[in-house]
Design a binder for these strands. Structure first.
Lengths: 339, 339
DNA sequence: TGTTAGCACTCAAAAACAACGAGTGCTAAC
DNA sequence: GTTAGCACTCGTTGTTTTTGAGTGCTAACA
């Protein structure tokens, strides 16, 4: 489709634009890429590339900038994998060595390091109950009226909430109840537990309606509402990008990021594994039609545990971002596996 | 110190400036405040107020804006309590009715509603272990090699982390261990547990060094690092304030907000209860010397459980912010008490 | 003695204008 | 096919002008 020279020129333009955010002119290319061509020749090629939809001109007397199509092409065919520097890897290793106390913290740190290394906003969505399977339930008594209900799932995470204990109920009864419920629900994905099953347990066990109601509600809550946790990182980073020098633009982006539902939708994990890059209008929301997103889903024993993503202007360092995410991705799966 | 007329004029200036963000001129005051005075008279008064340090002039041909001293005076003596509208109260009530599943969520929602209602950044810092007292420890087994260690504290919250179980150790042994540790540490504030005490437990109980080491580390972690949780709300809101129309300004603020340590320092809860307003240079960091902060500490049974704060430009709707926080404050204590 | 109309003055912000220069497209020569 | 040369475009930058909101001062008034 494109001959080698065009490809080379396109690549130079893209990479120059990515690093400078300024439209690229023919002189610059002649100087930088040692193609042994004069600006005039390059101009002809650029003119062709524009006709083919790879370049755009902000206005006549400016250089040219890559189109969405160009980025797509760049990501698909031009980009070379590009390993991380030892420095970067050491940074990541060191970063986690102190920050893997619990799962939440791991995700939180991931979001942080991700944004710090890519200079863009990062999002980490941890799928919880949706895939997690119920293992058992336990009450940790607090006092006569209250206990903490802990639900342990098979991915080693734990959810808890407070429940009120009916007057006079003994701890032994609670324990018994926990055992029965555990047996009933064991191995079920949290979000699969439906009304019918609750009803089943209800019939079998509980005399106390209020307790049971609050239990049901609590489990329901854990399963449905709490099913994904979102960690964001580095809104600050994006302010360094010239495309966000305008506050209005930042506001648009933040509106999306602060709306949990939107973030979830954005990252609704695709089935396939590996990295996924969405560019410009490929993104779901109009507010980020001039942004690109690189996302990766990570899994544990085949199950999707979460998704991480980097969001920034289409003029993004795809190479760097992809290699950082690739490294983090594998790294994360290892950490989680050893948990 | 100031006669009534000066007070009245000052108040009008402050409130006008708060709502418009434009320097206030004598004409405006004559029109708005029905003092029956001509602009000329008001000009004389304003001139006095400037001499007294209450007003500043951005430049000769502009109106005047309140000084930090003026805001201080306003907050201390001029402001009238100003109740929330029924509408606002209903909003808050409705907001919580669906969002009080667990403590984290309550704090999170608080940060959100706070920023939404005040149009400023909000921060909620939840003190955890520092004041919380150790109640008991429990292991929730996962498989042969792993268990979740839960530490229940007297404020009804729970912290957990994964620990590895030495090969061959039985669950009964763990239970026993948990019992011993619980007995040893019961009633102690988490951050008071020091090396000596660990050593004491160690001598009494454990044969296994690795398990013990990881236990120590885990408890230490919970006590030290995890002692406060921070919830932020509404960075977006602040972008609507004209003083943050400049991205550089926003970056400065975000640098502080994204640094957990700084937020904690900022809110390092003062002993006294009630609301505290810091204006301009009264704030700890130079990055927010043109901001004001309204904070409230909330308590449970006399113990400080956390702090919430609203941070925005000095030109802040103090009246609204204070009444929102006041309402939330009491509201929160009630919710937490009933937990 | 306090209040006010009148007026000259100030100065930031907006508008209008000029000069610059990076970059292009086209043509003609190599 | 490549390239030097040149006229042309148009955003950016800098300068000047205009505008108008607001002030301080003075003198007159109640």
């Amino acid at each position: 489709m494109l001959n080698d020279r065009k490809k080379k020129i396109l690549q130079i333009i893209i990479e120059d634009y990515i690093s400078t955010a300024e439209p690229v002119g023919s002189r610059t290319i002649a100087r930088k890429g040692d193609l042994g061509l004069s600006p005039a020749t390059i101009r002809n090629e650029m003119s062709d590339l524009e006709l083919l939809g790879f370049l755009e001109q902000p206005h006549t007397s400016a250089g040219r900038i890559p189109s969405a199509q160009a980025y797509r092409f760049y990501v698909d065919s031009l980009i070379e994998p590009g390993l991380l520097t030892d420095n970067d890897m050491a940074l990541i290793d060191g970063w986690y060595s102190e920050r893997k106390r619990n799962i939440d913290e791991i995700f939180h740190s991931t979001a942080k390091i991700l944004s710090r290394m890519t200079h863009n906003v990062s999002m980490v969505v941890a799928n919880k109950s949706s895939t997690a399977k119920f293992r058992y339930l336990k009450f940790l008594p607090l006092d006569k009226n209250k206990a903490i209900m802990c639900i342990v799932t098979d991915n080693g995470s734990i959810d808890n909430c407070l429940v009120k204990i009916p007057l006079g109920m003994q701890h032994e009864e609670l324990e018994y109840l926990a055992g029965r419920i555990s047996k009933q629900f064991e191995g079920k994905a949290l979000n699969e537990i439906d009304e019918k099953e609750f009803a089943g347990v209800y019939k079998n066990i509980s005399q106390d309606k209020t307790l049971f109601a609050s239990l049901t509600k609590a489990i329901r809550n854990l399963a449905n509402n709490n099913e994904q946790k979102i960690f964001l990182g580095g809104a600050k980073q994006i302010l360094n990008q010239p495309e966000f020098r305008d506050v209005e633009r930042v506001k648009e982006l933040l509106s999306i990021l602060e709306e949990e539902k939107m973030v979830k939708d954005l990252l609704s994990a695709e089935g396939d594994s590996g990295l996924k890059v969405t560019i410009g209008t490929e993104n779901a929301f109009t507010g980020i039609h001039d942004c690109s997103m690189v996302q990766a889903t990570y899994r544990l024993n085949g199950e999707i545990v979460g998704t991480m993503a980097v969001l920034g202007p289409t003029r993004m360092e795809y190479g760097k971002v992809i290699s950082v995410m690739d490294y983090l991705h594998k790294y994360l799966e290892t950490i989680l596996k050893n948990k």
